[in-house]
Amino acid sequence: MGHADAERHVTGEKYAEYVYGTIGVMVAVAGLNAGAHDVRATNAVVVVLIGALATWFAHAFSHLVGERVKRQGPVPRERIVAAFATSWMIVVAAVPATVVMVLSGLGLWSVSTGLSLANGTAVVSLAVVGVLVGRVSV
C-alpha cells in the first residue's frame, strides 16, 4: 500500500468511526429521551461521554483482538496506537451532543430540548459526512 493509499485508508476509517460514534450517541439520546422527565443535563452529559469513551475503547480493542488472530502473533505497538487514534473519532462524534447538553445544564434550554438538539446535531453530522464522502466517490 502506497503512502497515499494508506492515508486514504485511515481517512476512510475515520469517517466510518465518526458515523459509528454518531449513531451510538443517538442510541444514548434515545435511552435518555425515554425517561426525559427525570433526566438531568448532567446525567445526559455523563451517559453520552462515558458511552462514547467506552465505545471508543471497546471498538479499538475489539479491532486489535481481531488483528491479533489474523496476524497469528503480537500486534506491533504502532498498530495499537493507530487503532486507538482512528477510533478516537467515536469520541469526537459525541462532542456536539455533549456541548448541547452542557448548555442545557447551564440553563440555556430544557433537557428535553437539549436531547432534541442533540438528535438534530447528529442528523446534521451524518449529512455532513455524506457530503464529504460523496465528494470522494467516483
Binding site: M26, N33, G130, V133, G134, V138
Partner: peptide, 30 residues
C-alpha cells in the same frame, strides 16, 4: 461523476439519522 453518486451518501446517512429519530419518537409515544 453522476449527481446520484455525489448525493447518495447524504441521502442514505440522513435517512438513517432521521429513521432513528422517528423510531425514538414512536417509542416515546408508546
Amino acid at each position: 461523476m453522476t449527481l446520484w453518486s455525489r448525493v447518495r451518501y447524504v441521502v442514505i446517512l440522513t435517512v438513517i439519522g432521521t429513521a432513528i429519530v422517528a423510531l425514538e419518537a414512536g417509542a416515546h409515544r408508546l
